[in-house]
Design a protein around this nucleic acid. Sequence first.
DNA 1: TGATTAAATTAATTGGATTGTGTTATGACT
DNA 2: AGTCATAACACAATCCAATTAATTTAATCA
Lengths: 409, 409
Amino acid sequence: MTGRIRLSGTNLERAADHNQRVTLHAIRVNGSLTRIDLANITGLTPPAIANITKRLLGEGLIAEAGRRRGGRGQPPTKLVINPDACFSVGVNIDRDHITIVIVNFLGHTIARVSREVEFALPADVGDFYRASIDGLIDGAGIDRGRIVGVGVAIPDDLGLVDLPGRPAAYAEWETANLEALFAEPLRLPVFVENDAAAAAMGELQLGRGQSCASFFYILISSALGGGLVVDGAYFRGAHGRSGELGFLLADDGAGGRSQVQNYVSLSGLSHPLAAAGFDIVAMLDAAGEDARIEPVVDRWIEEAVRRLAEPVVAINCLINPAAILIGGRLPGRYVDRLAARLNADLAERATNVPVIAPVERAVLSADAPAVGAAILPFSHFLLPKPGALWKAPAEAGGTEAPGAAWAAI
Amino acid sequence: MTGRIRLSGTNLERAADHNQRVTLHAIRVNGSLTRIDLANITGLTPPAIANITKRLLGEGLIAEAGRRRGGRGQPPTKLVINPDACFSVGVNIDRDHITIVIVNFLGHTIARVSREVEFALPADVGDFYRASIDGLIDGAGIDRGRIVGVGVAIPDDLGLVDLPGRPAAYAEWETANLEALFAEPLRLPVFVENDAAAAAMGELQLGRGQSCASFFYILISSALGGGLVVDGAYFRGAHGRSGELGFLLADDGAGGRSQVQNYVSLSGLSHPLAAAGFDIVAMLDAAGEDARIEPVVDRWIEEAVRRLAEPVVAINCLINPAAILIGGRLPGRYVDRLAARLNADLAERATNVPVIAPVERAVLSADAPAVGAAILPFSHFLLPKPGALWKAPAEAGGTEAPGAAWAAI
DNA sequence: TGATTAAATTAATTGGATTGTGTTATGACT
DNA sequence: AGTCATAACACAATCCAATTAATTTAATCA
C-alpha cells in the first residue's frame, strides 16, 4: 500500500549502510571486482572503499581472491562474494504445487524439495514445511546460525479464485497468518510476497536485473501473473496489485472476450492436454521427449501468442520497459518458443507502437518464485533497496537497527 | 534512456543536499510548517532542522510567518515558502498551440501568453518566444536575476506524425536543437521534456502528487499522451516512451480497431465539431455557453469513454496507480464529465479487475504542460529527486556542483 | 507567582568520507 | 642489474553535517 509521498531525511549512519549495500551488490553483480573498480563504480574514494571492504571482509560477507596480474603497477586484489556467508529459505505456495529451497549468498539453490499437491490447505503446507526443512538443512550441511530468514511467495487471492475441484476450506488462505505458519522450527523473520513479485525481485537481484534496470516479468504458474521493475526497484502498485496482466481481456476465439489467464497459464494448458489424455505433471515429466504431447503444447503456444499480443503491446505503450521476461514452471524450451513467436508477432505491430521491447526467457524461471522469495531476507538486511537511506518513518515489517542484521551472524 | 542499474554511493555533502531539498518540499506541500513539524516529518532532529532552515532563510527561499498560538509551551514559528525567491519560464509547444508561462516559486502562474497556430516551425516558435519573453518579465515586475531556468514541453514525434495540412518543413522539429532555440535572450539552462511527462511532473510537485505517490496522468492535447509517476518519482521508461496510452487500440465503432488518440484528443474532437460547423477554438471560447456545441461534445464524451475504458483497465491491472488524473486543454467541465462517465463505466467492470483507481480531473490542467515544464528547473536545483543523493556517475544534463544553484542567486 | 510544557538554541561529540602524503609491488626502459 | 613510471594500497589529519545533552526562551495552567 503506497500512500503519501515519502519526505524522509537521511544521515551519516544511513548513508554508510547504503554505501555498504551498494558495494556488496556491485561485487555480486560483477562476480569479482578490485577496490579501485568499486571506487569507480560507486563514485566513492579509495579510502572509503577500503573501510567498507574491511568491514565486509571482517563479517565474512566477501573474501579476497588473489590478485590480477598483467598490467603495470601494483596488482589489485580481487574481491568476491563469500557464497557461504549466509543462507536463506524460500517457499513457493501455488494451487497445485509447493516448493521449498535453500539458497546460498550467491542465490544458488543448494537444497530443494517440491511436491505436486492440488489445493493444499495452510495446515498441510505447514506440516510439509516442518517435515522437510531439517532434512534440507542437514543435507546441505550448512550452519543453522547462518540462515538469515524465510521468504514466502504466494499468489494474491489464493483463497478467493473459484476453480473446479477447490474445497471450501481453501478460503482459509485469505485469513491465514503466514508469519506464524513458518515461525517454527527456525525462529527467523518471515517475509511474505506475491509470487510474481518475488520472481521479479529474484530476477532483479540475480538475473537480468543486473544488466537491465526496468523490465516486466511475466510469471506463468497455475495462473498468469506479472511483476514490474522500474529503475532498479520493484514497484508494488498502490494496493500491491501491479503487473496483473492475467486479468486483461483477449478474444477467446469464439467471438467473445475472456481473461488472458484463463488460457495462458498451466491450468489453461491443462485443458488441451486433458483432451489429448495427458495432464500438467505428465507434460513436465516428458520434458519434450513425448511426440504426442509436443503438438498439443505447440498449438497452445500459437493460441497463447494470439491472446498475449495485445496485453504485451499495452505493457510496451504504458510502461516502456527495456525487456519483457517470461518465467515460471513452463519448461524452458516452451518458454523460448513462446518468446520467439511473440517477438515475431510483435514485430508486425511495431509500426503502430512507439517502442517494442524484446521478449526473453528469464534467467530465473522454474523455481523463480521460491528463489525470489529466498532473496527477500537478503534484500532486507544486505542489498541495496529504496528506503535504506530513509530515516523516517520506520519501515513496516522489520524494525531492526541498520547493521544489526549481519552483526548478529 | 534507462540502462543499467545505478550503483552509486553517497556522502555527507549529498545527504545534506537531499535533506535540504526534502525540507523545502515538505514546507511547500504543507503550506506552512514549524521546525518541530519538519523534524517529525523528515525524521531529522530539531538541531539539524534548525541548521537547514537557517540556510534556507539566509538564501531567502523560505520566510518566517508568525507563531502559532494557543497550546502550552513556547509558540512555534511557522515557516512558509517565499513565493518570490525564484522564478521559472515554461514553454509548451503543440501542433496547434504555443503557451509561455512564468511561474513563481509556489508554482503559481504570474505571467502567461498563448497563441493558437497550426504547425508552427521551430523558427516561428523561437521568434514568438523572443518577442514575448521580455514583455512577460516586465509585466510581472520580477527581477531577471531570480529566474533560474527555462523548461520546454513538447510532444514526442512532433515532426513525424502525419496529419492533414502538415507542411513538409514540419519535420524540422525532429532535428531541432531546442536548447539553442531558447538560449536567448535569457542565458539560462534549458530543460526539455515530453509534454505529458512535464504535465505529470507538474502534477507531482504542485497537484495531486502532494497527497498521492503513484498516479497515471492522461494528457488530452492535440494528441493523447500519458505520464507515469511511481512512488513519488516520474518514470520515463527505457526509451522515454512510458505512458503512451494514445497508441492503444479500441473498437472504432465500425467493426475495426484504431488508436485511441485518433478519437480521444482535440484533433479527434475537431471532426464532430467540424461536422456541426465549429472548430476547437470556437469550442474553447464558448466555455459551455453555446447550446449548439454542448451536445456535440457530449456525444464525443460518450464515445471517448467507450474507447478509453479498456486502456484504463489495462492501466489499473498493469500499474495499479492510486489515481488516474486527466488534464490538458479540454475545458474543466468537460473533463469532469468525462471522468464521471468513465468512473461509472469502470464500476461495471470492477468485478473482473483486481483494483480500479478513481479517475479525476488533475489539479493542473489547462496549462499543465507549460507549468510542468516550468517546474523542471526547480526540480533540478531545489526539489527532492531521485539522484540527488547519488555521487556517481555524474548526471546527464546539468553538471553543477550541489548547492551551486541557489548560491548563485 | 511558580510550576509545567514545548520550542528553540547552544555546545560538545560522533562517525564516515575526504584530502593529502607516503609506501609497496609490478612492468618498462636503459 | 638498476632506475623510472605506474598503479594499488595504507595511514594520518581534516572535514562536516547530524547527533546527543544541556540550556534558554516563552507560552499556559494552577
